[in-house]
Simulated assay, not measured.
Amino acid sequence: MVKEIIYYLEGLQKNNNRPWFQEHKDEYDKLRAQFEKDIYELIQRISLFDPEIVGIEPKDCIYRIYRDIRFSPDKTPYKNYFSAYIALGGRKSERAGYYIHLQPENCILSGGVWCPPTPLLKMLRQAVFDHIEEFIEILEEPSFKMAFPEMQGEVLQRLPQAFIHEKNFPHPDLLKRKDYVVIGSKPLSFFEQPDWIKATATEFEKMLPFNRFLNYTVDEYLGKTY
């Protein structure tokens, strides 16, 4: 079914306008419904190793295809990808979770904390600073590094003011981050295998220590425990 999603998105990418979308609305509805079923199954599989995912509904995780164009110079009305963010609280959650993104020539699995509010970002940087050996061990674990070889997001040019005097800190770039997100690109063939949902969950399981490290601080920020 992912192949059909990609084929549909290729058409949408070339014809990103309301008349084309309306003409192919039945096809979109069918693919969206199947994607929701796939995300449901993926949630069930993730729940086997991450209990806080238990009971999350696909509709709370899947992003709308409609773009918010109010403040964007790009006025094309539709996204050219299907995506979902699986985390406690769904797609709007501030917690580290699991992200799947299906787009022509840009299919990815990703996770972590994206675009946190400033107070949380400061706390995450402090956690990385205080527990750098643990964090590096997570990032360098061979199976994790193979699945998610790079971090994504903006990086400051200079150390944040809170760490300006930590000139000898061995990993300054980790303190300059505005996001704590890892990403792994996948070929379309990965999603064409019959058990791609199981394979996706297997990749996400490697991310569990990374997300747990981040969520310990997110919980402190939210003042909650789970």
Rank of each mutant, 00 (worst) to 15 (best):
P170R: 00
D195H: 12
D173H: 06
P194S: 09
P194G: 03
E192L: 15
D179A: 15
F169I: 02
N168R: 12
D179T: 14
P187A: 11
L188C: 10
F190V: 01
K178E: 12
E166A: 12
L188W: 12
V182G: 06
D173E: 14
I183R: 13
K176G: 03
L188Y: 08
Q193D: 05
K186E: 11
Y180T: 12
W196I: 11
L188D: 14
P194T: 07
V182Y: 08
P194K: 13
K167Q: 13
K176L: 00
R177V: 06
H171V: 09
D195W: 05
F190T: 05
K186V: 00
D179I: 00
D179Q: 15
L174M: 11
H171A: 15
S189G: 07
V182P: 07
Q193S: 09
I183L: 15
K178T: 10
N168E: 15
Y180D: 12
L174F: 08
F169D: 00
K186I: 00
L188M: 14
P194D: 12
V181G: 03
F190H: 14
K176H: 02
Y180S: 08
V182H: 07
R177P: 03
P194E: 13
P172T: 02
I197E: 03
D195E: 14
G184H: 01
D179C: 13
L174N: 05
D195S: 10
P194V: 04
V181S: 04
R177I: 00
H171F: 15
Y180I: 14
